[in-house]
Design a protein around this nucleic acid. Structure first.
Lengths: 254, 254
DNA sequence: CCATCTTTGTGCACGCGTTCACAAAGACAT
DNA sequence: ATGTCTTTGTGAACGCGTGCACAAAGATGG
């Protein structure tokens, strides 16, 4: 996974498991597509296929929301769109601030997916005075000196951090102090926040590394038997000599 | 979570649980920071704090890699950096292509975290002829007509999709056909791929929706008792009348 | 060489999430 | 009204991931 919630130990919120909550947006997207094609109803099997999940899982997920299906028929698309939207809190407007308007921040500001679901970019904030006033995605960038005022004036409770890693914790602290209680963090750092504040992180580098792991595994299985694969820990735990597979490590322990 | 692997059902790879693999990059980052500060050894407790995880979990994670610690002392930082890097496959060079050089693709191309860990941007590809030849992050953009040739000439096995949702599946199919076996997908679509191909997705909109859910919950608990919160499923399962909480749905079922 | 102290590595129990498989429920035709 | 057929909703079993708590291991000092 790219993200993991910090704090609030996986306690299922009002009976809806965290894993289910994470899938609801997926269902919602598939349902929205069906809605645009004016499809009136959909079975769990069809919807599951569209969302890329197991149909039993989908039915169980929906069962946490209530009995919104009709046996023998399926689910009413429009009704389900509304129910999931409401459950996710998308029937209300969520003002969001983006802090750190570099390449990534600008890309986020321009991202269409924001506005489409109740999220509204209330402000763009950057620490560089040269950026101040410059419009990005039609919104003038404001200086970070005014961060607290911006948060309070707009009633912002969700903040997006797209700053360099070094600045992330300080920005996070200021956001939280100003009243933000949900943070989406793109900076490659572990943020520490007080209880009651949710943090989700998106980290490119981590995703790539996970892919690399599996990629290496595939390559290793393919070219099997030549080296016998990676040596077991027991076989090399005591001798800190040459690299175990012919490739010298950059640094070895003393 | 922002991502989930498709296919290859959570079968633990060579004994290393998927959950552990996902945390290794986190440990690696913390260790790299320690290494830069020339810290020779670190205890599981310290490292766990830096990575934002439980120390018991960290020790168990490392136990899957082997016995690399010294009781009473801790872990040798440099040695562990090497071991994790090797396990993740970061000791080799991974050429990566980015397809779709819009705002996001350009941001990704400029992202420093790519190059720092063995990942090399081998090519930028876009379908817009007007982009062709234009340098982004110092790399000239190539037209998607040459996608297959680029993949093969550079031995690319990891592809990043940053196209609009509509183009993602087609691009994915071409990447896979050309030999790519790992895909990082930023487009808001469910990609279908053949067995043996790993897909991880990063989806902004989903992350925000998950935050909104929890945010709504917090707000609801705070202003408790006024409405009694969201009605239970049982209480409203049979009557499809007015919106349950005074807010009319956009559309209701027949 | 022995005692003490620190820290690892892991056995165990628990809870969450997933999946199977089926009974219950309703639509629809006759 | 009754039977058939489709599809939901869920009880139950299973497996993975997490965290506790402790024994084993080794460093360090006397």
């Amino acid at each position: 996974m790219a993200t993991g919630r910090t704090h609030r130990p996986a306690t299922r919120s009002r009976g809806i498991p965290e894993a289910t909550v994470a899938r609801l947006p997926l269902y919602l997207r598939a349902l929205t597509a069906l809605s645009e094609r004016s499809v009136p109803t959909v079975s769990s099997e069809e919807l599951a296929a569209a969302a890329g999940v197991n149909s039993a899982k989908l039915r169980k997920d929906f069962s946490y929301l209530g009995s919104y299906g009709t046996r023998g028929v399926g689910y009413d698309v429009e009704y389900l769109v509304y129910q999931i939207s409401r459950e996710l809190g998308l029937t209300q407007d969520w003002p969001v601030v983006i802090v750190g308007i570099g390449n990534l921040g600008a890309a986020l500001a321009n991202y269409g997916g924001f506005a489409s679901r109740g999220f509204r970019v209330a402000a763009l904030i950057d620490a560089d005075p040269a950026m101040a006033g410059k419009p990005v995605a039609g919104i003038p960038v404001q200086h970070s000196d005014d961060l607290e005022k911006i948060i309070q004036d707009n009633g912002v409770s969700i903040g997006v951090i797209a700053t360099p890693a070094g600045a992330a914790q300080a920005v996070c602290d200021r956001l939280v102090a100003a009243g933000v209680t949900s943070i989406l963090n793109f900076a490659p750092t572990v943020l520490s926040v007080p209880d009651g504040v949710d943090v989700r992180k998106v980290d490119l580098s981590i995703e790539l590394q996970i892919l690399a792991f599996h990629e290496q595994r595939k390559a290793g299985e393919e070219a099997a038997s030549s080296d016998g694969g990676v040596p077991t820990a027991a076989a090399r735990s005591d001798s800190a000599d040459q690299g175990p597979d012919g490739d010298m490590p950059a640094v070895m322990p003393a």
